[in-house]
Design a protein around this nucleic acid. Structure first.
Lengths: 157, 157
DNA sequence: CCAAGTGGTGGACAGATTGACCAGCGAATT
DNA sequence: AATTCGCTGGTCAATCTGTCCACCACTTGG
């Protein structure tokens, strides 16, 4: 279930240089190609590695503004709200959380002005009682996983 | 700068089946291989596609608990706090947002109990005045980009 | 109206990589 | 002591990659 040190090195290597293939990875890691192949298969069927999808930058697509919104949902409207938000492309993710606000989502928009349109579309729905939005100004730590992978690999050394 | 319809189809195709190569993609899209290669190169040098890093699931690594924390920062301590949080593997991303010295981060932990340890580590730092945490219960819309890509491609049809 | 530039096509080539095997070996388990 | 497991180092044919090329259609500037 957990990953060992070799798994960790493999993931870190793939994260740093995704273009290399199995053969090159085996050379870098100093193990046989079959081993890398087996490890990769295992990691993928384990679900540790979900895939190798392209990492698309919303800013480069023309959506440079990111915001987080906390939504308060009317009792029993959860499913409807989920469906509604799932249909809005600018909603990049949605979570239900503990606490006052019942849901929490990440939004992108073409500009600050455009963000207003997105928010109107998000909250323009019956089940949503209230929304509060925080606009992202800087992103000192972009979404990352490598430090966690390294720690997880350490734990099983 | 913006992407056209073919770019959109290419990205969607790669997102759905990352294992296919340039040749197979050109077959699926009904265009010449050179075209796909040129588009891919352009998308990558544009920064639209940042890379093809492995998509690692924290839950499968042993960190099934996700939480979001809002942090209030003491004036002038921003840089220190950034450095501190950057050193915590369980901090998967960090943003500074509108509002008075507010920051916002995504955390993972091995369990609800472990989350307490993580939070203690996060807030156990001088520059942080206050923190409020929301634990994620469900994730109806996992982080996604395809709907946005499709919309962006539509806009330039 | 012509010329240049851009982007796509279809084809070629050698070289590298892949997926699928195999037998052997050491360590851990039973 | 026998078995199982994971890794090694090797082979094989098939495929894909990177890099050329000439050609064509379309747009843009002169």
């Amino acid at each position: 279930m957990a990953i060992d040190h070799l798994d960790g090195r493999l993931i870190v290597l793939l994260a740093r240089e995704p273009r290399i293939g199995v053969l090159e990875a085996s050379r870098r890691l100093g193990v046989a190609r079959g081993t890398v192949q087996a490890r990769l298969d295992r990691l993928q069927s384990n679900g540790v590695i979900r895939g190798f999808g392209p990492d698309v930058d919303p800013a480069a697509l023309g959506y440079p503004v990111t915001a987080f919104a906390t939504l308060e949902i009317k009792q029993g409207q959860g499913a409807d709200v989920r469906a509604h938000l799932g249909g809005v492309p600018e909603v990049l993710e949605l979570h239900t959380t503990t606490g006052h606000g019942d849901m929490f989502c990440r939004l992108v928009a073409r500009s600050n002005a455009d963000l207003q349109r997105v928010i109107d579309r998000v909250v323009g729905f019956d089940g949503i009682v209230r929304a509060s939005t925080a606009i992202v100004m800087e992103n000192p730590v972009p979404l990352r996983i490598i430090p966690l992978v390294e720690q997880a690999a350490q734990d099983t050394d």
